[in-house]
Amino acid sequence: MISANDDGTLRWAAWQLGAPPSQSVRLTFYDATHAPARPLWSTGWPDAYNPLVQATSWTHAGRPVLALTMQFGAAAQQVDLYGLDAASHPVRMAEMLGAAVGWVVHPDRTVLIVYQTPVSALVPHCFDWQDRTGQLAEVKCPAQ
C-alpha cells in the first residue's frame, strides 16, 4: 500500500488473488478519507503473482510515479508505471517485461533495470524517467 498524495487520503494497493496456477494480481486506487475506503479505480492481470508496489523518486505532473512489479514466470517479470492526471485519475505511463526487474536508487537518481536474456545470462538494460516527454529513456547502467 502506497500513499498517492501528501495527506495519505489517496492510496494505491496491490495484492494477489488465488493460488498457483490460477493466481492473478489486482491494483486498486482508492480514497481513504473516510472508513471504509472507497475504491476509485481498479485493474488486474490474470496469471500474475508476487506483486510489489513502490513509490519512486520519479514524478509525473508533480506527483510521485508508482511502480508495480509482478511476475508471470520465474523468468518473466513486468514493471508498470502509474501516475495521476490533473483530475487525480490513474494513468498507466509505461509497461516493460523482462526476465527480471531491479532498481538502483541513489539520493539524486533512480534507475530502472530490466534484465533481458539474449541467451542464458541476464543482461541489464537501464532506464530513467523523462517527465518532460512522459516516457522512459534508456540510459547507461550505473556501476554497481
Partner: peptide, 25 residues
C-alpha cells in the same frame, strides 16, 4: 531454445524461483 540463467536457482541445494504453475524451478 536456450536455458534458464544460473541466477534462477543460485544455490543448487535450495529451491529455485517459483514458476507460473507454483512449482520451484
Amino acid at each position: 531454445a536456450s536455458t534458464y540463467s544460473d541466477s534462477f536457482q543460485p544455490d543448487p541445494s535450495k529451491p529455485g524461483l517459483r514458476t507460473a504453475t507454483g512449482e520451484h524451478y
